[in-house]
C-alpha cells in the first residue's frame, strides 16, 4: 500500500467520522474541566471514547466508503492497518484535548496523562476494532476485552506506577489485536453487513 493510499483512507475515514471525533474531543474537554487532577479519569474516559470511535468503523455505517475500500486493489491487512489508525488518531486527539485542559488549569498531571493514557487508548481502540467485524456475543466480548485492557493499563500505569511495563503491556496487546483484525478483514465477507 502506498503512503498516499494510506493517507487517503485515513483522511476519508476521519472525514466521515468527523462529528464523532469532534464530540469525543468535546467530552474529553468537559470531563477534564470537571476532573483535571490525576490520570485515572483521562485513562478510562479516553479509552472509552476510543472504543466508541472504533465501533463507528463497523461495516455498513459508512457504506460508500466501505464499498470504495472493498473494491480498491488492496490486501485485507493493508486495509486493516489504515482503518486501525483512525480510532487511534481520534482517541489520541481526545487525550491531547484532555491534557490541554489539564495544562490550562495548572494540573501537574498533563505529562503523565500523555505518557500513560496514550498507549492505553491505542490498545483499547485496536482490540475494539475486532468487535466491528463480529456480531452478537462475540462482538460484546471484544468490547469487554477492550475494557479489560483499559483496566490492565490502569493497574500497571496508575495503581502500580509502572510506566514502562504498562507501555509494554499495551504494545503487546495492540500488536496482537492488529494482527487479529487484519486476518479477519482478509477473510471478510462483504455481504455480511446488514443491508438497508
Amino acid at each position: 500500500m502506498t503512503p498516499r493510499a494510506f493517507a487517503a483512507m485515513l483522511q476519508s475515514r476521519l472525514y466521515v467520522s468527523r462529528r464523532l471525533v469532534l464530540y469525543a474531543c468535546a467530552v474529553a474537554v468537559l470531563v477534564a474541566l470537571v476532573q483535571p487532577a490525576g490520570v485515572t479519569a483521562p485513562l478510562f474516559c479516553c479509552s472509552l471514547l476510543a472504543v466508541a470511535i472504533a465501533l463507528d468503523q463497523t461495516p455498513g455505517r459508512h457504506p460508500h466508503v466501505d464499498r470504495c475500500e472493498q473494491s480498491a486493489p488492496l490486501f485485507g491487512r493493508e486495509l486493516a492497518r489504515a482503518k486501525a489508525v483512525v480510532p487511534c488518531v481520534a482517541g489520541l486527539l481526545a487525550t491531547i484535548a484532555y491534557a490541554g485542559v489539564q495544562i490550562a488549569r495548572g494540573s501537574p498531571d498533563a505529562a503523565a496523562t500523555l505518557l500513560v493514557v496514550s498507549p492505553a487508548v491505542v490498545a483499547c481502540a485496536l482490540v475494539a476494532l475486532s468487535a466491528t467485524v463480529r456480531r452478537g456475543w462475540t462482538r460484546a466480548l471484544y468490547v469487554l476485552l477492550a475494557c479489560v485492557t483499559s483496566a490492565g493499563a490502569y493497574e500497571l500505569g496508575v495503581a502500580e506506577r509502572l510506566v514502562l511495563p504498562e507501555f509494554a503491556f499495551c504494545a503487546v496487546i495492540a500488536f496482537a489485536a492488529l494482527r487479529q483484525y487484519g486476518e479477519t478483514l482478509a477473510r471478510w465477507d462483504p455481504l455480511w453487513a446488514p443491508r438497508p
Binding site: 502506498t2 493510499a5 493517507a7 487517503a8 476519508s12 470504495c68 475500500e69
Partner: peptide, 20 residues
C-alpha cells in the same frame, strides 16, 4: 452517493490515491 461539487474533487483524489 450524496456529494456536492466541492466533495467531488476530493472524492476523485481519494479514488485516485486508492488506485495509485
Amino acid at each position: 452517493v450524496a456529494l456536492d461539487d466541492a466533495a467531488f474533487s476530493r472524492y476523485i483524489a481519494y479514488r485516485a490515491a486508492l488506485w495509485n
